[in-house]
Nucleic acid binder design. Sequence first.
DNA 1: TAAAACGTTAAATAAATTTTTAACAAACTT
DNA 2: AAGTTTGTTAAAAATTTATTTAACGTTTTA
Lengths: 183, 183
Amino acid sequence: MSESTERSRIKIEEAKDKVIGAIAETMDLYGVTPAAANLYATMYFKDQMTLDDMRTELEMSKPSMSTSVRKLQEIEMVKKTFTRGSRKHTYVAEKNFFRSFMVFYCQMWEREVKMNMEAIEEAQEDFINVIKDSTSTPEIVADAKKYYDQLEESKTYYHWLEDLVANIRNGNIFEFLPQGKKE
Amino acid sequence: MSESTERSRIKIEEAKDKVIGAIAETMDLYGVTPAAANLYATMYFKDQMTLDDMRTELEMSKPSMSTSVRKLQEIEMVKKTFTRGSRKHTYVAEKNFFRSFMVFYCQMWEREVKMNMEAIEEAQEDFINVIKDSTSTPEIVADAKKYYDQLEESKTYYHWLEDLVANIRNGNIFEFLPQGKKE
DNA sequence: TAAAACGTTAAATAAATTTTTAACAAACTT
DNA sequence: AAGTTTGTTAAAAATTTATTTAACGTTTTA
């Protein structure tokens, strides 16, 4: 291999690394571990990888790659592929950022709605009990009512968020905001 | 204070705590520290608080409250209010979740677009240089071109995300998805 | 102008998370 | 069936992040 060929190869790797770094950094912000973030960003430029490929490429331990890949599969940023012949499992990165966006945020928001709505429903029941309790003083009833109403109003937001998730999942969001828009 | 009045007060606190716990847990997921998450969730049920109120209510150190409040101000979930007469600073929680959603995600997505687009532009320049380099072998040129094209395609997503941010900021999103939708 | 109140910064401690090393289990090869 | 290969689980180590204690600067009050 010639001198300049080698230089070009290095330049390509450095260029990729810039993007890998940026992608990994944003994923970090999304609550993904550094190992998983680097792994996904690396896989973004690869066709497919085995656990051993990953370990070699990132110079990290195999269990680390194993857990990272599992985490990435959970948020559907990586999928297992069937590669005949090889005993090793092979994985591919989801390269369509629209799909990653959809899965990641829908998952996140749905969980948020579920958790918070459950807590709200329970709390509202408690407030009703206090209000209905004949031994409660007017001041206490007023307080309970105030909190009940505050929670009731907040439900509007959670319904909206659920609606947003539905419209992302069914693709309607792209009717409002087309993917193809130019600069 | 009578026995049952005391019981009602406790029931109210417990009900609030259920919601506080849920809100704090979701905020945790959004990369906010536990102290800040608990603080916001607590403030959600309060009219306004001073740093000392916070320290007392959460039983945490004052510097912890200070940094937490600052972080919450950054993502605009808490605002400083002017309270005449008191030397202490007073803070109020943003209670409209729609506004919190808008500020938080727009900030996050905008930073993501900026960071990643910068890296992409730089990398694309590098790839172009390799392609134009007369000493590059056909194989290397093909490789550089492949990566260049992959990045070029990914830009569609970042443009879309920018567009989404714009349409959230200007409120158009609520034309597509009204806030008032019933159950 | 001295003392107190308030908030922030910096260093140190504590806690939580991430990664690794080591041990294990299952599937495959020979 | 014994020995590999592959991937995962569990315990340990390392790193990072969060929180506290201590010190400081500024403003206010007496």
